[in-house]
Design a protein around this nucleic acid. Structure first.
Lengths: 206, 206
DNA sequence: ATAAGAAGCGGAACCTAGTCCGCTTATTCA
DNA sequence: TGAATAAGCGGACTAGGTTCCGCTTCTTAT
């Protein structure tokens, strides 16, 4: 039996009108270009709307807010990773021991964060954390499943949260550019956290 | 020898001009009243300035930004807690074993968060986390000292971050009001996290 | 084919955090 | 006491995210 399916929802439902779908695509393309060209902190929603040739209303109808647009832009990479988690080869995919799968996942996720994602997420810093609504929301299930199997003695929900909070974009930027840590140190730290939960939870259960 | 002194800076330096100090006081009083009366999410910086009888320039000269004002409002409670950590009776103050001190601190800090602080911090959600600049910034040192002594085998800086990230206001509100957890569960989760780091780090060191 | 209605659209208006700058006032020192 | 000066002040202004609403366009059922 495969794990639960915490797939990131594909934004394009079939009930979307043709012009709406084309606008969505144009907005995403325009945003991708502008973000790449100027950096995400020098691109306003106006800029994107103008470049895409749509009005503000359209932007906000499609994506809800700036965070929604950002998450949509990040969606593809995360759908790939998620696909690997569900059906890829071990250690990312099923088949490897929990500790190895956790490590592989953590490293991969932090690598994405390090590859421009953190900067993008920082520009969305409104009233909610990416952890609860953004890409990482989808990984909670994955982590919960792994922990529940391998460390049943834990308050799995709490442990999962410590693990995803560690993907916080501001924290990543802090470590990386204010403290000059190499990515590997952040990844190692995360793996240690995962191990530590596993060790603590393995005892009582099974 | 006492621990290092990560004291939250008192905002009133003696070099502050008399009118400036009085304005600071009036702003803080006005903000306290308005926040209490309407809730922090229904009070703009304009509102506070008007109620205090000062201009916007004064607000921003005194407190830098909305987050600065909020942190100042929270300051007193945190100075109290910090005082207890440094010079109070065990288990908060010096003298108790590290695990007990960590538990006592975590519970106290989460109690503050639960007592209105989370809602206030949510309205500041700009480009930085309270973890890096707000009240919790001051607790990093405390945690680092305790961990360094009791668990020298760890990457203490990373572990400290997982511990303070768990004080995230959004996360707290999520657990508390969207998932309806009792405070005690959050506190227990945090204590478990602290224990788990201690257990992992105690082995190799000393 | 066409009319009815839902879905979508544009962009001006709004709200609020944060900045700027010319004027005012407390302080200090002769 | 009375300049000189640095600190502080007010409030109009800017910028950017978000909302609103009257108009347009796609869809579909007849």
């Amino acid at each position: 039996m495969p794990e639960e399916l915490p797939l990131i929802a594909l934004p394009t439902e079939q009930t979307e009108r043709a012009d709406a779908a084309s606008n969505r695509r144009r907005i995403l393309e325009a945003a991708t270009e502008l973000f790449a060209a100027r950096g995400p902190d020098c691109v306003s929603m106006q800029d994107v709307a103008q470049a895409a040739g749509v009005g503000m209303g359209t932007m906000y109808r499609r994506f809800g807010d700036r965070a929604g647009l950002t998450f949509a832009l990040l969606g593809e990479r995360h759908r790939d990773l998620q696909e690997q988690l569900l059906r890829g080869a071990p250690p990312l995919g099923p088949g490897a021991p929990a500790a190895e799968r956790l490590h592989a996942f953590g490293r991969a996720r932090i690598a994405l964060l390090d590859d421009g994602e953190a900067q993008m997420l920082l520009t969305t810093a409104k009233a909610e954390s990416a952890t609860l609504r953004g890409p990482d929301a989808a990984y909670r299930t994955h982590l919960a499943v792994l922990l529940r199997d391998a460390a049943p003695a834990l308050d799995v929900e709490y442990a999962v949260n410590t693990l995803v909070m560690a993907f916080d974009a501001r924290l990543h930027v802090h470590f990386r550019y204010e403290r000059d840590w190499p990515v590997e140190r952040i990844q190692a730290g995360w793996c240690a956290l995962a191990d530590v939960w596993l060790a603590a939870g393995a005892g009582a259960g099974v």
